[in-house]
């Protein structure tokens, strides 16, 4: 998928147009700032108080990145264990699914009791929200091996370790990365839920304050900051994917 200059041009123009229409509407209809602030007002808020937003963005980014990395580690580990041990699969897979079905927002207050109001509870929540797709995709990737390849491994007396390291693990990488992309966006949600429920730092906390004080432009700056953080982590995952799977760009090129 190549991105041309026209593509970038179209996207930029549409964003500018949306902002312009938004600005015009708030001015024409005299919409009060606490209901819908104009883009210019939001911009002024961001520029004048940027140290505040930078600080809280850093907190939230820290929570989501640590939670995301832990989710990746836990997810990959669980997947390997599930694939290789029938007993453990029977023991933990159903419980993982049940845990996934329980709404994480509902677990958040409990986590505050267990892990306190600090960063740990937010990191744990980000981890909880984002690890499930990683487990499921990783399991699929480790198992989806052509039968002939497994035959080849047997003929070559590869043993379990070589079969894992030379065939199953690299085969699972595309599955892993597509789940990491999903997980990276989920981890933002986890961190913000944690900040909503309790604590006094992070963009989620800023949004709560902004709401109680009806400072809607502050809400908007926090929202934009959140999406920038999500984008950033997503971009980092894509970067890692390119580095780890240099062969992948040839896959779509040939039939």
């Amino acid at each position: 998928m190549g991105i041309s200059k026209t593509d970038i041009g179209t996207t930029t123009i549409s964003i500018i147009a949306t902002l312009a229409v938004w600005e015009l509407l708030t001015r024409i209809f005299h919409i009060p700032g606490f209901i819908l602030p104009a883009p210019s007002a939001i911009f002024i808020e961001a520029v004048t108080r940027y140290p505040l937003y930078l600080y809280h963005s850093w907190i939230t980014f820290y929570e989501m990145v640590v939670g995301f990395l832990l989710a990746a580690a836990v997810g990959v580990f669980l997947a390997v264990v599930i694939v290789y041990s029938r007993i453990i699969r029977n023991m933990i897979y159903p419980q993982i699914v049940v845990l996934q079905i329980v709404p994480k927002v509902a677990i958040a207050p409990l986590l505050l009791i267990w892990a306190g109001y600090g960063l740990t509870s937010k990191v744990l929540l980000a981890l909880l929200v984002s690890f499930f797709p990683i487990v499921v995709n990783m399991v699929t990737g480790l198992v989806a091996i052509e039968e002939e390849l497994l035959d080849l491994c047997r003929i070559l007396h590869s043993g379990r370790w070589q079969e894992f390291s030379k065939v199953r693990l690299p085969n699972a990488l595309p599955y892993l990365f597509s789940s990491l992309k999903v997980a990276s966006t989920l981890s933002v949600i986890g961190a913000v839920i944690g900040e909503f429920v309790g604590g006094n730092e992070g963009l989620g906390h800023l949004i709560i304050i902004a709401n109680t004080e009806l400072r809607t432009s502050m809400s908007f700056v926090s929202l934009f900051s959140l999406s920038i953080l999500g984008f950033l982590l997503y971009g980092l995952v894509i970067l890692a994917e390119r580095v780890c799977m240099p062969w992948e760009r040839w896959q779509s090129a040939s039939g």
Binding site: E146, E148, L152, L156, H157, V167, P170, N171
Partner: peptide
């Protein structure tokens, strides 16, 4: 048998 070279209908090369 490791003393065998095997070729299948599909090449099944490791794409990575």
């Amino acid at each position: 048998l490791s003393d065998v070279g095997m070729v299948f209908q599909r090449p099944v090369l490791l794409k990575w």
